[in-house]
């Protein structure tokens, strides 16, 4: 008689797997990829391709060397590479982009044990490393197409650096008149990283992820909501603040990273509010015009504690 499978229940599973989830994230990032090409040209695709390919190769290579099971099939390295690329300026030298992908996969992810084990978001951490290592290249913003910037301009200010100039935090002679229109902000015709400028594209992706139940609303709503309310209270052009910088991509795609954020709704709310607070502090009082990456990294570090505080209360549980 054929040997029969004997296993513990359940004997059926929901269709989602790690791979289908990562595939959904990639699908959700597609509008942002299209926007990047639209506003920053075809070189965007090159940067994205380099980051994705290097990320996948590093994951494969590292796992081979360490004789671990190869997990590139779960597509998580593709997601990391793509997210990193979307957080880089279009003019970034390709070898620097490749270096960033290597840092993300090898240093931040694999050295901590691979998928599910890293404490910090690989793409964010790699971006911060690059910011420190290649400061000039990382803050060189080419003007976006359709943004009304002079065609021969080689650099453009980002809305946040303009606001920083207005606030007198950084040197600059900008005035409110230099800010792009709110519509341009929403569509993405402004200076910034490849994938962060188009709020519309990111919103589409975010809604898709929520509809597919890949993420819940808690983190993005708490994150964006906190920035909105705080900047309004501080008189800081809240609508600009919300749409500017990497807030949307951070709130929908980076702060929602499973491994580095809490699993419970309460934890997600705390995480989102914390990210929002830190972002506003950095933007308003800090030396950097942008604070989304730092805020998420800081909250990643606090994540184990948030997880501890926000454990669920078991149904019918009695205190010992």
């Amino acid at each position: 008689m054929a040997n029969r499978v004997v296993s513990v229940n359940p004997h059926v599973y929901a269709p989602e797997t790690t791979t289908t989830i990562m595939r959904d994230v990639i699908i959700a990032l597609c509008p942002a990829v299209v926007a990047s090409v639209l506003f920053f040209g075809v070189r965007s695709l090159l940067v994205e391709a380099v980051c994705v390919i290097v990320a996948v190769l590093c994951e494969w290579g590292f796992e081979k060397i360490c004789k671990r099971p190869v997990t590139i099939g779960d597509l998580s390295a593709v997601v990391t590479g793509l997210l990193l690329a979307l957080n880089l300026p279009v003019t970034i030298p390709l070898w620097q982009a490749a270096f960033g992908a290597l840092v993300a996969i090898v240093v931040v992810k694999q050295l901590f044990g691979g998928i599910g084990m890293n404490f910090a978001n690989p793409a964010i951490t790699a971006r911060i490393v690059m910011l420190v290592a290649f400061g000039a290249n990382m803050t060189h913003w080419a003007p976006a197409a359709f943004s009304g910037a002079p065609a021969d301009a080689v650099t453009a200010a980002t809305p946040l650096s303009i606001i920083a100039g207005i606030n007198g935090v950084s040197a600059g002679t900008n005035t409110v008149a230099d800010l792009p229109s709110l519509l341009d902000m929403f569509l993405g015709a402004r200076g910034g990283s490849l994938g962060e400028t188009s709020c519309l594209a990111l919103l589409l992706g975010g809604v898709y992820l929520i509809a597919r139940k890949v993420i819940t609303w808690h983190t993005p709503v708490a994150f964006i909501g906190t920035v909105l309310v705080l900047t309004a209270l501080l008189g800081q052009q809240p609508l600009y603040q919300v749409m500017a910088g990497g807030l949307f991509i951070g709130a929908f795609f980076m702060a929602t990273d499973y491994t580095t954020s809490p699993p419970t709704p309460a934890g997600k709310l705390i995480f989102g509010v914390g990210c929002g607070l830190i972002t506003v502090c950095i933007r308003v009082w800090g030396n950097y015009p942008e604070g989304v990456s730092f805020s998420i990294l800081l909250m990643n570090i606090l994540n184990p504690y948030i997880c501890q505080w926000t454990r669920t209360k078991p149904f019918g549980g009695v205190k010992a």
Binding site: E16, I21, D74, S76, P262, P263, T264, P314, F315
Partner: peptide
């Protein structure tokens, strides 16, 4: 495969 800490098991458990 490795747990990705997605929280689905928590969200699905009838007894929290």
């Amino acid at each position: 495969t490795a747990c990705i800490r997605c929280g689905r098991c928590v969200a699905h458990c009838p007894f929290h």
